[in-house]
Amino acid sequence: MAMVDSLPVIDGHNDTLLRLYEASLRQAQVGQDFFVESTEGHIDLPRARRGGLAGGFFAIFPRHPQHAQLLKEHLHISDGAYEVRPLPAVDPIYAQQLTLAVAASLFQLESASQGQIKVVRSVAELRHCLQEGILAIILHFEGAEAIDPHLDALEVFYQAGLRSLGPVWSRPNVFGHGVPFRFPHTPDVGPGLTQAGKDLVRACNRLGVMLDLAHLNEQGFWDVARLSQAPLVSTHSAVHALCPSSRNLTDRQLDAIRASGGIVGLNFDVADLREDAYYDPNTPLSVMIRHLDYLVERLGIDGVGFGSDFDGGITVAQEIQDVAGLPRLLAVLREHGYDESSLRKLTHQNWLRILDQTWRPQG
């Protein structure tokens, strides 16, 4: 897989697997759209090749069966502010069934790819994929509803390839409380991790599963910061000081991530980047660069990566549009003054460092 400008990109978060799974329910062949360039969604294999996407964290998100309807019903907008009232928890049995189905479709996709994609379970496998031009898929759970409180399922999913986990999405579950969608608001909303959530953190440390803090509320963030022995990671977030969304990270949280040697993957969703939180696809890339500059200043160049939220975020800037637009982002960063050494870190080296420090070596 040819890489644009010789800079392979590892992306911190996308929701492509769920989009492909839902499409497969309407088609005879699992994931067939992934191998053909399309205008649907943000990622397919041809566009990934053109954009230089070398790998990424591909999420399984067990969303509620009435997800879109619930978001619409719970959304309240007034005077430049919005709030999504607390969303209900998802039935764990349903969540586990959906997670198994999406995971199975991923492994079928890998088999059908004839070696073009690989689910990676070690940093050595990830580096090999980058060298050989194979699209590397890191299996991520966005919300741990598929895992039981005794963590038996965690052991099984780890053996199947799970290497990254967000304990919650923006709703409650047995492990903790996700941060609700509010603007303007801080992420300090509700209680933190439950005892089961604290046990989950320790088990992920033991197994070498990366913990993702992107949808945790602030109390949960600090619970993980106190408990975890691994670098703190938020795979797809932005800066609260620049866009006061509850989903964004405060300066104090950013300082804690830096102190742990962690990383933030910059979210591409313009509503979490703009000062007014508008869903405007004509948002200039300068707005994204402002967040990136702030993160680099606060975390250092070693603590920042990309976390697009492709196929999950509602609105991506038109200048990028989809994964094939990544070279445009890199060109703008060069024009802005980022040198090649810095761009290598932002595109892939920083994610490799974090995984080197988090995953267990595989024999």
Rank of each mutant, 00 (worst) to 15 (best):
G208Y: 01
A68I: 10
T39N: 14
G208T: 04
G41Y: 14
T250G: 03
D152E: 15
I289C: 11
Q349E: 12
N350Y: 06
W222Q: 06
L18G: 14
G176V: 04
L213E: 05
P86S: 07
A68W: 05
E142L: 04
V123A: 09
Q116S: 13
L273E: 01
I43M: 14
V156L: 13
Q321W: 06
P231C: 12
L130C: 09
L165I: 04
W169M: 14
V239G: 00
V4C: 12
F35E: 09
S38A: 12
T39Q: 14
T39P: 03
R360Y: 00
R344G: 04
Y82M: 11
A101E: 11
R63V: 10
G325N: 10
F141Y: 13
A271K: 13
E275Y: 02
I93A: 13
I257T: 14
I257H: 13
L139R: 03
Q96C: 13
K118H: 13
V296P: 06
Q362Y: 06
E218A: 06
H128L: 14
A89M: 07
D293K: 00
D15W: 11
D212E: 04
R182Q: 13
I289T: 15
L249K: 00
Y158N: 12
A68G: 08
L355F: 09
Q108F: 00
V179Q: 11
D356F: 03
S105T: 08
V102I: 15
I43V: 15
L7R: 15
R298V: 02
N205P: 05
L53C: 10
V123M: 08
L45S: 09
Q159M: 05
V168S: 09
Q159F: 01
L346E: 08
R85K: 13
L292Y: 02
Y294P: 01
S113D: 11
Y294N: 06
A48W: 09
E340F: 01
M3S: 14
L266T: 09
S111C: 07
L326P: 04
I134W: 01
